[in-house]
């Protein structure tokens, strides 16, 4: 087993989160704005070919944070455009991220049926 790959995933993923924490604490940006920025930034970074090296280096450390969501959208689009042109520009992104989106929706509905919110203390 390659322990370095776990270490890389840990520190890169952790660093991305820590940077976002600075933005949340210092700029009063709401979490929703941070998330939107991350996804769009992920698309942009991948578009300029900057994110693939991070993914190669850190694996899940780069794909699990929401930047990775943008990365899969962009990667999906690039692949689909190469294969089917204009149509691909519309279908590629969602196809690339389809697993995560569909899972979130289905589990959202499912767990909403079985669980209910609890008061906090």
């Amino acid at each position: 087993m390659n322990w370095m790959e776990y270490f890389n995933a840990f520190w890169v993923g952790g660093a991305i989160c820590a940077i976002c924490q600075i933005f949340i604490d210092k700029t009063k940006l709401t979490p929703a704005r941070i998330l939107v920025s991350l996804v769009v930034l992920g698309v942009a970074l991948q578009a300029f070919g900057l994110y693939q090296p991070v993914v190669d280096y850190a694996g899940a450390g780069a794909t699990v944070p929401l930047l990775g969501f943008g990365y899969s959208l962009a990667k999906g689009v690039a692949k689909a455009v190469a294969e089917s042109g204009l149509l691909g520009a519309f279908t590629g992104g969602v196809t690339g991220a389809a697993g995560g989106i569909a899972a979130a929706i289905v589990f959202g509905c499912l767990f909403a049926l079985i669980a209910r919110p609890k008061s906090r203390s």
Binding site: G14, V64, P65
Partner: peptide
């Protein structure tokens, strides 16, 4: 950093 890193490690 610690929690985010831990979640990514689980992802790996």
């Amino acid at each position: 950093f610690l929690f985010g890193g831990a979640i990514c490690t689980v992802g790996e």
